[in-house]
Design a protein around this nucleic acid. Structure first.
Lengths: 241, 241
DNA sequence: ACAAAAGTGTTGCTGGTACACCCATGT
DNA sequence: ACATGGGTGTACCAGCAACACTTTTGT
């Protein structure tokens, strides 16, 4: 009796959504890499008829026994062979008509990989690195997702030292500065840049030099997370409008 | 309360539909208000047997013809009568076992409301404002969601002028400073705070004074978004580790 | 020798922080 | 008169921006 009532209410609640209201949950990964001085993103050609020939982000539907983080790790592992890259949830896109095949809600992830790692393991030539600045149209709402993640990346690299994920373990200060300049589309004064970075204490002198370079070689450094944590601990609260 | 039951039944019904992998998508709203000098959050008592008597965020499942933004606006409108409040997507929580009734993926929204608006329209006394600092256990993973949104709030108010959403249209500088201090749990020097805020040009002198106050009344100001946009346009890129 | 980039200090300016006194209002 | 907070200015310090020359390596 009461059971019936509750059941009815439950169905009414369901009907509210529509009895045939089905949706899928997926992840889409915006995988950034820094290659030959250019910020690039890893894309695949869409196989959806509506978007034939357009470029699409790497993604997949959520599986039963995984959460969204695990799903995006899985996508990256399966598609690039790379594990343990930097990965961060950015935003969930849920516009009603964003996907032609039905109601698909998709959570966007931003990933940073070292293009060299990827090159070693890739065999799938349906994937291509695209210069971010040259991308115009994409499949679905993926251009919007890309732009959202690019903005998130620009904001984040100014506040936290994540950009090292785009570089080799050992890098020259010039490379480091170039990545910042490429991603942010601004230029830094070399001397001030060095001062700033050294002041954080997060760079470790590896006592090695560049070797493959056609001019005076620079020193190589690596990034030390603990040193950064100690540094930033003098935490910094205030109004930065 | 009954609402909560229906929601639960709806989740269960979805999960009981055959062997296929079914899940629900929902929104959970972390609604912040500033009341009597205290940062508070609007909560409802959970009637989930697993969480009986625990406090829960306001949320609902996603409906067929709406996206997540619209769903969270709907929840706020239905539950508080307030429209047009500040609302921002924060993060999607998808842990496999986060909900006892089945697989529920939930997108968290941060909302800022003026408690006075809410007081005028509320009739639902299952809802209560809770001081954020006094909340320990909550239903589901809602404590985690709350903490995540609180951190997002703290970060965001330091970078963008959204805190005005917690105050009346006209406010004294003291009130404004107190909200900042309460949310960030730090103190500002009064003179420097004024200088900083006036320098942004986003405060409009309303040529009115406080009236209900037991000491020398302060001037009232309002927030001017356009002025802020003009101000921040001298945009600010750099490394702020 | 030349080209290319590495490496290095100083100065001025700007913005942040620290700090104290008088004023207006209510009780 | 007293208590409470409103309103104001200055001096110091730190961090940022601007700026040029010498050094090392490869060709």
């Amino acid at each position: 009796m009461l059971d019936e009532t509750i059941k009815t209410m439950a169905y009414r609640a369901l009907n509210d959504q529509g009895p045939d209201f089905k949706y899928s949950l997926s992840v889409d990964c915006v995988i950034f890499g820094y290659d030959e001085g250019i910020l690039k993103v890893l894309l695949i050609e869409s196989d959806q008829p509506e978007y034939y020939g357009k470029w699409s982000l790497l993604g997949d539907v959520l599986h039963k026994h995984e959460d969204l983080n695990q799903a995006s790790y899985r996508v990256l592992r399966e598609r690039t062979g790379v594990s343990n890259m930097y990965l961060e949830q950015v935003k969930t896109f849920s516009e009603v008509n964003r996907h032609p095949a039905g109601r698909v809600v998709s959570t966007a992830y931003l990933a940073l990989v070292n293009v060299k790692d990827y090159k070693l393991k890739s065999v799938d030539n349906a994937l291509h690195w695209h210069p971010v600045s040259e991308i115009d149209a994409m499949a679905f709402d993926h251009k919007l997702i890309l732009d959202t993640c690019l903005n998130a990346l620009r904001k984040k690299i100014q506040q936290e030292p994540i950009i090292f994920n785009l570089l080799d373990k050992k890098f020259s200060l010039r490379k480091l500065q170039q990545v910042f300049e490429e991603v942010l589309a601004i230029e830094f004064d070399r001397r001030n840049f060095r001062k700033k970075l050294f002041a954080t204490g997060m760079l470790v002198d590896e006592n090695e030099m560049e070797s493959d370079v056609h001019h005076r070689p620079g020193k190589l450094y690596s990034f030390n997370l603990q040193a950064y944590e100690r540094f930033k601990h003098k935490s910094f609260v205030g109004l930065h409008f």
